[in-house]
Simulated assay, not measured.
Amino acid sequence: MKKTLLLALSLTAAAYSAQAQTAAPAAVGPVAGPAITFEESKFDFGSVAQGGTVTHVFKFKNTGKAPLIVNNIGVSCGCTTPEWTKAPVAPGKTGTITAHFNTTGKFGMQNKVLTVESNASAGAATVSLVGEVKEASATASTAPATSTGAAAPAKMKMKVK
């Protein structure tokens, strides 16, 4: 009798376990809280001459169901300064982060990371500026090179002081 009862309990437990593992995944949709989604997370500014400022605007959308508030943006170095949308971004609406990278004193390949701190459900997000800073006397291209070697449309402004 004990063996039969033990066998019945084991089979019941196995059936529940198998059912839990084969359950359909929940539908993926907007997050209950705020969510930040960037159009691009990395901007390649190509090659620029040392001494200027590279400026790029990162656009983001609140893909969640609650207002998104960007609290702060941390930078990987003091040569990069951010400006961002300070007002809450309603669900479905967009905001911007403008990154200014001062190339003075920089040389070679650069990767400037901006850490976006917000009330997004997923936590902090990052965006980055990448490219090469050449000596001021070297010729610099304002259009980043693509993998095919052709120039892509530039999305940056150069400010030379």
Rank of each mutant, 00 (worst) to 15 (best):
A49V: 13
V70C: 01
G29L: 09
G51W: 09
Q19G: 05
F38S: 08
A26P: 07
M109P: 13
V48W: 00
Q19S: 06
V54G: 01
K93A: 08
S47H: 06
P88Q: 10
T53N: 11
P91K: 07
P88M: 11
G52K: 05
M109C: 10
A27P: 05
T53G: 06
V54A: 02
T55L: 08
F107V: 07
H56G: 05
N71S: 15
T53E: 08
N71F: 14
G105Y: 07
T85H: 02
A66R: 13
S17A: 12
P82S: 13
T22S: 13
S76F: 02
I36R: 00
V31L: 05
K112Y: 04
K61E: 12
T85D: 04
K86R: 12
I97L: 11
T80H: 04
M109E: 15
I73H: 00
F45S: 02
P91S: 11
A26L: 01
A99F: 13
D44R: 03
V28S: 04
G105K: 09
Q21E: 00
D44Y: 02
T37V: 05
Q110R: 08
N72F: 14
F58R: 04
V31G: 00
C77M: 12
F60W: 04
Y16K: 09
G108R: 13
N62D: 11
K65P: 14
P82A: 15
E40S: 06
P88S: 10
A18K: 06
T104E: 15
A35T: 10
C77P: 01
G46Q: 07
A99K: 11
S41N: 06
C77T: 15
G108L: 08
G108Q: 12
A49E: 13
G33S: 11
V57A: 04
Q19H: 08
G46D: 08
T53Y: 10
V54H: 05
T80Y: 05
T104R: 15
I97R: 03
K61R: 14
K86A: 09
D44E: 06
V54P: 00
A20S: 07
D44A: 08
T80K: 06
V28E: 03
T104W: 10
G33D: 10
F101K: 02
F58N: 04
S17P: 03
V89W: 01
F60M: 02
A90N: 12
A24W: 00
T103M: 05
N102W: 09
A26W: 00
V54M: 04
A99Y: 12
P67S: 11
S17Q: 10
F58H: 08
F38L: 12
V75K: 08
G95D: 11
D44Q: 07
G33C: 04
V54C: 01
N72P: 10
T96C: 13
T94E: 03
G74K: 05
T55V: 14
A23D: 00
K42A: 02
T37E: 02
P34E: 13
G52R: 06
G92E: 03
A24S: 06
V57D: 01
T81S: 08
T55I: 14
P82R: 12
H56D: 02
G64R: 00
V89R: 02
N72A: 14
F107D: 09
Q50H: 15
S17N: 10
S41Q: 08
A49F: 08
T63N: 07
G95I: 13
S41G: 08
A90F: 12
